[in-house]
């Protein structure tokens, strides 16, 4: 009576319950990762909000040049999101080389963003900003929060560039499929999305 049904060699859809989300596991995994990463960023942004609220004389050091630089960085990142979508679009039409080219453009834009960002950091470090030091003599926590939040974001950018590189290479060789292009794109858009909070909250709110 307890003999189970037996069958071999029939694919996933036939023998599995449908996922409530009807998406491949990889994409669901990516979404879950994004959810948890969003909580990570939220926690660190809340920490920033906490120390800022608790500080009476917060330093607002950003010159117009920094804000302009920030706008350029934002633009670069937004455009890179569109190029990711272009790569996905090409992949869906089975145009592998075109898709890989767009992924390459995304990587270049990502690296440009990182370069602009690091230039900004170097400028600030030259002025005397440190994790634990405020050259203007105000509360030291501006430096701490700025470097922590943007540093965490920068790590995500660099990881994203590496991930896109891996996907692009493997995709051009044919060992990965369109779904991977989409998943890495999801991650890239998420990094972009986080920047949409980091830019106003960390840059604009600290403009002179």
């Amino acid at each position: 009576m307890n003999e189970p049904e037996v069958a071999v060699g029939i694919d996933h859809e036939t023998w599995n319950e449908e996922s409530p989300y009807r998406i491949p596991s990889r994409k669901l995994g990516m979404w879950l990762f994004i959810l948890s990463d969003a909580v990570t960023f939220a926690a660190i942004l809340y920490a920033y909000a906490f120390v800022r609220l608790a500080t009476a004389n917060w330093t607002r050091p950003f010159e117009v040049s920094s804000i302009v630089n920030g706008v350029v960085m934002t633009t670069v990142l937004l455009v890179s999101s569109v190029t990711t979508l272009a790569a996905l679009d090409a992949a869906k039409h089975n145009q592998r080389s075109r898709s890989v080219t767009w992924l390459g453009v995304t990587m270049l834009l990502g690296m440009l963003f990182a370069a602009l960002h690091i230039r900004e950091w170097i400028k600030m470090i030259d002025k005397g900003w440190r994790l634990f030091q405020n050259p203007t003599g105000g509360p030291v926590l501006f430096g701490s929060t700025f470097f922590c939040i943007t540093g965490l974001h920068l790590m995500h950018i660099i990881a994203g560039v590496v991930a896109i590189a891996v996907v692009a290479i493997k995709y051009s060789r044919g060992s990965l499929d369109t779904g991977h292009v989409e998943s890495v794109g999801l991650y890239w858009h998420f990094v972009d999305l986080v920047w949409m909070f980091v830019f106003p909250l960390v840059y604009l709110m600290n403009a002179k």
Binding site: P24, V82, A86, D89, K92, D177, T178, G179, V181, E182
Partner: peptide, 10 residues
């Protein structure tokens, strides 16, 4: 059929 979702046009 690729398991990817529809996206907007470019």
């Amino acid at each position: 059929n690729t398991g990817t979702s529809r996206v907007l046009g470019m």
